[in-house]
Design a binder for these strands. Structure first.
Length: 291
DNA sequence: CATCACACCTGAGTGC
DNA sequence: TGCACTCAGGTGTGAT
């Protein structure tokens, strides 16, 4: 499911609901995700207060008040959503199929007292390609899942020069290189196709053959497509929803993804969008205006 | 090393 | 309606 804009949208939604609440109960219904949920997961989290929620690449990071960080990934089909009872003590919806972990949270600890009777957050993942593991905040950069990640595409240190250096010498297609989370962190199958279209670069070009100028253009295109997607709340293909259940709308703004056979949206271009398979993933592009 | 095919798992969609 | 088949937003592995 989720690439950077979807994970960032969920992250922001969760932060608004969870920061400043205490985890009063954590129930793990299935441990066998892509990596097993640690046996002491629930015990380690119970009683902790959520300090902050952030994102690195496609990982969600939930910082707790004891130096523990929950490191989460949604894989292809994972969802995290908030369930809030409409009234204090009102019954929450029953746990559904593929709800693997349920976090029960207290009312906000600080601030004006209110009728908020707490809420719960559900981790749901039919395919179980996602994961939920634990890290240590003060040593998070060394965490095995995070230490090899490349630059954040929306950060100022992701430049054309950095991209050029990270793909130097690579003979694989630029499409495949951009999916490599060590080259740039957070892109997935949709946004790679969309960014290459905006940069007018063919996905079949050898990554190392891009000029410095092309790398600079590609960096700009990556930023623009991610920012546009963030503004739309991400893309909803089949099951992605934001933390509060709202759906994203960027799928309506795709220019090439899943548009095989349609006219190239670039003004005056007579090309037709083509679908090819690279590294076992579908790639969409206009063979006329992407060179 | 770099590259690639494939596996992991479930559900949705399609065509017969 | 049912069945067989294909495809899907990700990533780690083993073979080459």
């Amino acid at each position: 499911m989720p690439e950077l804009p979807e994970v960032e949208t969920i992250c922001r939604g969760l932060a608004g609901h969870l920061v400043g609440r205490r985890l009063i109960e954590v129930s793990v219904r299935r441990h066998d995700l892509r990596q097993p949920i640690p046996a002491d997961f629930a015990q380690k989290l119970t009683g902790r207060v959520v300090l902050e929620i952030s994102r690195r690449a496609k990982y969600l990071l939930m910082y707790l008040d004891d130096d523990t960080v929950v490191v989460g990934h949604l894989g292809m089909s994972g969802r995290l959503f908030v369930q809030k009872p409409p009234l204090p003590s009102a019954a929450l919806p029953p746990t559904g199929a593929h709800d693997h972990v349920v976090f029960h949270l207290s009312a906000p600890i600080a601030g004006p007292s209110q009728s908020d009777g707490g809420l719960r957050v559900v981790y749901n993942d039919p395919r179980r390609f996602g994961l939920l593991v634990l890290g240590v905040a003060s040593a998070l950069k060394k965490h095995p899942l995070l230490r090899e990640l490349g630059p954040e595409p929306l950060s100022p240190n992701f430049t054309g020069a950095v991209l050029a250096a990270n793909v130097a010498g690579r003979r694989s297609p630029i499409k495949a290189a951009l999916l490599d989370q060590g080259v740039v962190a957070g892109l997935g199958n949709i946004y790679v196709s969309e960014a290459l279209f905006r940069a007018r670069i063919s996905p079949e070009r050898a990554a190392g053959s891009l000029t410095r100028a092309e790398c600079g253009q590609l960096v700009k295109s990556i930023r623009s497509v991610l920012e546009d997607a963030l503004a739309a709340g991400g893309s909803t293909l089949r099951d992605y929803v934001q933390a509060d259940g709202a759906v994203g709308s960027f799928q309506n703004l795709f220019r090439v993804y899943d548009r095989e056979g349609q006219r190239c949206p670039r003004r005056g271009c007579p090309g037709l969008i083509r679908r090819v398979v690279q590294a076992a993933r579908a790639t969409y592009f206009c063979p006329l205006c992407q060179r």
